[in-house]
Design a protein around this nucleic acid. Structure first.
Length: 706
DNA sequence: GTAGGGTTAG
């Protein structure tokens, strides 16, 4: 009997209008359903945790016509909305055609809770048209809708209505205004509202700190938090979450965590997750890990915070390892987690890991497919497989400007400038390129040595597409001209730039001077760089190299002294290679591997073989002032060569050797690798900090143009 | 007699 009645109700309720007005249904109801008394109605509605029992209560209400009473029906509608059936709530709402502000508030809130911000704003306007005056409850909902929908115009209009209706002093309304202006990036308006509030509570402070976080004004957020504590306001969870997001110094982090503990908020998991991020941001990955390990019931956010922490600390391998542990515990990643894992993999340049992660993405059936697939295209590009990248790109259902730019820059990085330009033409027919697209195209031209095409592209930016060139576009042009040997044109270009040349621009010129051994211009460029980019060791090393390779050893040494004086440390070069799912790292002269003995004896043999083929070590690439023979030894043990030998020893004869170097490949290693690919018949793909080199049959895809 | 604001992190 009971079961039957519930089923009947489901039928009835879905035909809402019919149900409300038909006497026939009322008769059916009487047969099965217990009539509901007014006293018990509200408490019964409140008890409903799912839609099903709510429908039963609804049915019982119909039996005694309680649904015709505005008070009860408003309650009912609010609960339908909160239990997830916004469309049904709206059906009931439309049927009632009431002008009661309470009912409208409930409906607007329902839309906001469901993320249907535009509909909430639309309802507010309808309400005004019907002459219903908004009250102190209406504004917080609608203002939130404006903020979340990034509807600035409506937001400003709402602020005006708040003033006109005399609600500026309401603390709830004020708080929601602060949050909204924070989302609009208008901290100054939020601050004005905050300052003019006659009564502030912890939410007001928290919202204002949150506004600062949103606009990346972390110092302001932090000092506001301190002021809040000074005024004796006890922070709640939201307040410390916002404040923790502002911290980027270890001392502040410790101080912050003391406050968290004093207020007994340290047992909250969201606070613990935020602590992981806070300490990771302060460079204390160990402390972050300690927090992670101590969280008893880790949720997805705990795991992905720690994964992201490893990625930010440039430990992609640790990130990937943690991700695998997470999978073992059967915690399913969502789109955010997967995206960070894809990015970790991209920086690892491991093809096998890329295949694995791509598989996960395919099987995940998550939303954000566009973003995920674009990340996978980038993943394959960075792992050295244009073929797979193109396959994924071709299969995409929709592509946005980012997908296109990714694919274009992929071709550029691999030295296929013509392909990149072809793709750019296809893209232009579909959408307007932006500054990122132009950067991809310009860098493709520069890697491919296409000067004319590069100029055409650069000129068309502002002329045809109204995209104003940024410093990085100028740097790309300098790189293009400089590497093509047009060093003086490059300098002219810099001197006529409408904006001040930044370190990227001068760095591009310096790099070109290295290729073409132009000391005079290099000195001009480095003079700027040692001021603009004094912390960057690469600039000093490059200039020192330029001197050394022209035999000006004293000058080279001076540069190295300058580095020492300024406390700038050279970035250690390393090369990684992956074999059977394990990643091996080599530094120059590395002897830490099990197979070290074997590696060095093989290396010796290999170097002798390529010497016979005509390889001559380029001693210019040794920075130190040592004996010639010693120099040659130092070249032999560069990390690139060690990793290649390791690959030759441990990978099957048909397997492509894929290695990745953290800096630019050394010129001598580049030459040696060409010879190695020739004598061993092995294909070698090398990713360096700038681009890819595919070595095959003694040549490189870059055409020695890098 | 009913309902409300900030955060929900990666």
């Amino acid at each position: 009997m009971q079961k039957q009645s519930v089923r009947l109700y489901n039928v009835l309720i879905y035909g809402q209008r019919f149900l409300l007005f038909s006497t026939q249904t009322a008769r059916i109801n009487e047969t099965f359903i217990k009539p509901l008394e007014a006293e018990t109605c509200i408490s019964l509605i409140k008890q409903c945790k799912t839609l099903k029992p709510l429908k039963s209560v609804h049915a019982s209400m119909l039996r005694t016509h309680l649904h015709l009473n505005l008070f009860f029906s408003t309650n009912l509608i609010a609960h339908y909305a909160s239990l997830g059936s916004i469309s049904y709530a709206y059906t009931l709402f439309s049927a009632s055609s009431s002008l009661d502000v309470f009912l409208w508030n409930v409906m607007i809130r329902g839309f906001v809770d469901h993320g249907l911000y535009d509909r909430a704003i639309f309802m507010y306007r309808q309400m005004l048209e019907l002459g219903i005056a908004p009250d102190n409850f209406t504004f917080p909902f609608v203002i939130k809708a404006c903020g979340c929908a990034r509807d600035f115009e409506s937001g400003v209009e709402l602020y005006r209505h708040v003033v006109e209706n005399g609600y500026v002093k309401d603390v709830f309304v004020g708080n929601s205004l602060i949050a909204m202006y924070g989302k609009f990036g208008r901290t100054e308006v939020a601050e004005r509202v905050f300052g003019e509030m006659p009564e502030k509570n912890v939410v007001s402070w928290s919202s204002m700190i949150g506004s600062h976080v949103q606009n990346r004004c972390f110092e302001e957020g932090l000092s506001l938090f301190a002021r809040m504590l000074d005024e004796g306001i006890r922070p709640n969870r939201a307040a410390v979450l916002n404040a923790m997001a502002c911290v980027c110094r270890e001392n502040d982090a410790d101080e912050m965590y003391r406050v968290v503990r004093d207020n007994k908020l340290d047992l909250d998991r969201s606070v613990q997750n935020a602590a992981i991020q806070m300490y990771a941001r302060c460079g204390r990955i160990d402390v972050a890990r300690g927090f992670f390990d101590r969280i008893g019931n880790k949720d997805l956010v705990s795991w992905s915070s720690m994964i992201e922490a490893y990625i930010q600390t440039d430990l992609p391998l640790a990130a990937l390892e943690l991700f695998k542990q997470m999978k073992v515990r059967r915690i399913n990643p969502d789109a955010v987690t997967l995206l960070s894992v894809v990015h970790a993999c991209s920086s690892l340049a491991s093809f096998q890991q890329a295949r694995f992660v791509h598989g996960l993405v395919v099987r995940s059936f998550l939303r954000n497919q566009l973003e995920l697939q674009t990340a996978v295209v980038n993943l394959y590009v960075k792992c050295g497989s244009l073929v797979y990248a193109q396959k994924v790109f071709d299969k995409m259902q929709e592509r946005n400007i980012i997908s296109w730019s990714t694919m274009i820059s992929g071709y550029g990085m691999h030295g296929h400038a013509r392909e990149a330009l072809k793709l750019f033409d296809q893209m232009k027919a579909l959408m307007k390129p932006d500054h990122v697209t132009f950067l991809s195209v310009l860098s493709a031209c520069s890697h491919g040595g296409l000067v004319t095409e590069g100029w055409e592209c650069f000129n068309s930016m502002s002329r045809d597409f109204k995209v104003v060139p940024r410093p990085e576009h100028y740097a790309c042009m300098v790189d293009l001209l400089g590497r093509a040997g047009q060093l003086n044109n490059a300098l002219d270009f810099i001197e006529t730039m409408p904006i001040k040349p930044d370190s990227g621009v001068w760095g591009a010129l310096l790099g070109a001077c290295r290729v073409h051994s132009n000391i005079e211009l290099a000195e001009v460029a480095s003079k700027h760089l040692f001021e603009l980019d004094a912390e960057n060791p690469g600039r000093y090393v490059l200039m020192s190299n330029i001197y050394a390779s022209s035999g000006k050893q004293t000058h080279a040494d001076n540069i190295r002294d300058l580095m020492k004086q300024r406390g700038v440390k050279k970035t250690a070069g390393h090369t990684i290679i992956e074999i059977k799912n394990k990643i091996y790292t080599f530094v120059a002269g590395d002897t830490s591997h099990n197979q070290s003995g074997l590696i060095y004896s093989e290396l010796e043999k290999l170097m002798n073989r390529i010497r016979l083929e005509g390889y001559k070590p380029d001693l210019n690439f040794v920075l130190h002032n040592v004996e010639e023979e010693m120099k040659e030894k130092m070249l032999y043990v560069h990390s690139e060569k060690l990793a290649i030998v390791f690959g030759l020893l441990n990978l099957g004869p048909e397997t492509i050797i894929r290695i990745r170097k953290n800096l630019r490949v050394c010129g001598d290693c580049h030459t040696a690798t060409k010879f190695i690919s020739k004598v061993t018949g092995r294909e070698i793909i090398m990713r360096d900090s700038h681009r890819f080199h595919h070595f095959k049959f003694g040549t490189c895809s870059c055409g020695d143009y890098w």
